[in-house]
Write a protein that binds this DNA or RNA. Structure first.
Lengths: 139, 139
DNA sequence: GTATATGCAAAGGATTTGCAAGCAA
DNA sequence: TTGCTTGCAAATCCTTTGCATATAC
C-alpha cells in the first residue's frame, strides 16, 4: 500500500505523509487543494499543520506521486499521477472538473514541440465552459 | 491610436492607462507581468504606482484588450488580444515563450466540449519543454 | 463641477521558511 | 544516535483594497 509508494519515492514513512496520501487516494473527486487536505485531516482528528501539508504535497509532486494543476484562481490543486494521462474540462459556474483523453490532440502537441525544436517535457490543457448541469440550475 | 481603444472600451483616457497601453504595445516579447510593466514605467520616468498597474491591467482584461495567462509560477502575464488566436510553448530553462496556432487542436477542443455538453467559453493550452536555444547554452 | 481614477499604505490570501523539538531508521 | 520531519509563527510573494487627493470631461 502507501508505505511502498513512499519508500520507492525515497521518502521516510511518517504519519503525516501516510495520512495525506490516504486522504488523496480516498477522495471522491481526486482534485484537492492544500486547504482541502488540511480540513480533511482536521475532520479525521489528525494533528498535522498546514505548513506540513504544503511541504508534503510539494514532496509528492517532486516524487511524481501527484500532479499539480493551477486551474484559474490562485489555488493549486493536486491529483494522483497514477490516474494516468488525461486533460480537464472545468465548469466556470460550478468549478466542477471532468476529465478527457484525446490522442489526436496529444499527437499534435508532440508534433508541434518537434517542429519548434522543443524537447517536450509536459503540457497543460484545460477547457473552460459551462456544463450542462450548471445550465439547468440557472434556468 | 490608443486613445480610441480606451474610449471604445468605455475607459476614461487617463495618463496611466495610455502609458501602460503604450508599453505593452511596444514590448518586444508581448508577455508582461504587472511588475514588468511597473519597472518599465519607472525606466521611462513615469510616476505611477504598482497598485494602479494592477488595476489598469485588470480593467484591460475586462475590456478584452488584454488576455491574462498564468504560465507556471504564481505570476500572471498579459498580452494583447489583438495578436489573435494562438497558444504557447514555454521553455522551462529560459522562460522564453513562443506562439503557435493549430486548427486541428482547436477543432478537437470544440468537439470535446460539445461531447461533454459544455458551452465552450475558453481554453488554455501551454506546452512546456526545453528549447533548442537552451540546449545549446547548456552544452 | 462631479464622478472616476490615482497613490500610498495597509490588508489579503496562498505558500514558504527558520528554528527548536520530535520521530524514524 | 543522527539526520530527516514536524509544528508553530513569522516571513514572503503577488495582488487587492480603503481612503483622501487629484484628474478627465
Amino acid at each position: 500500500m502507501e508505505q511502498n509508494d513512499l519508500k520507492k519515492a525515497g521518502l521516510k514513512v511518517t504519519l503525516p505523509r501516510v495520512k495525506i496520501l490516504e486522504i488523496i487516494e480516498s477522495n471522491p473527486d481526486w482534485h484537492m487543494s492544500a486547504e482541502d487536505v488540511y480540513k480533511e485531516l482536521l475532520n479525521r482528528g489528525e494533528d498535522i499543520g498546514l505548513a506540513t501539508v504544503y511541504r508534503v504535497l510539494t514532496q509528492f509532486e517532486g516524487a511524481d506521486i501527484l500532479k499539480r494543476h493551477q486551474f484559474e484562481g490562485g489555488k493549486s490543486v493536486f491529483e494522483l499521477i497514477s490516474k494516468g494521462d488525461h486533460d480537464h474540462l472545468v465548469c466556470i459556474k460550478t468549478g466542477s472538473v471532468e476529465e478527457f483523453h484525446d490522442p489526436i490532440i496529444q499527437e499534435r502537441i508532440a508534433a508541434i514541440a518537434e517542429q519548434y525544436d522543443f524537447d517536450l517535457t509536459d503540457y497543460s490543457l484545460v477547457i473552460y465552459g459551462i456544463s450542462g448541469a450548471a445550465r439547468v440550475k440557472k434556468k
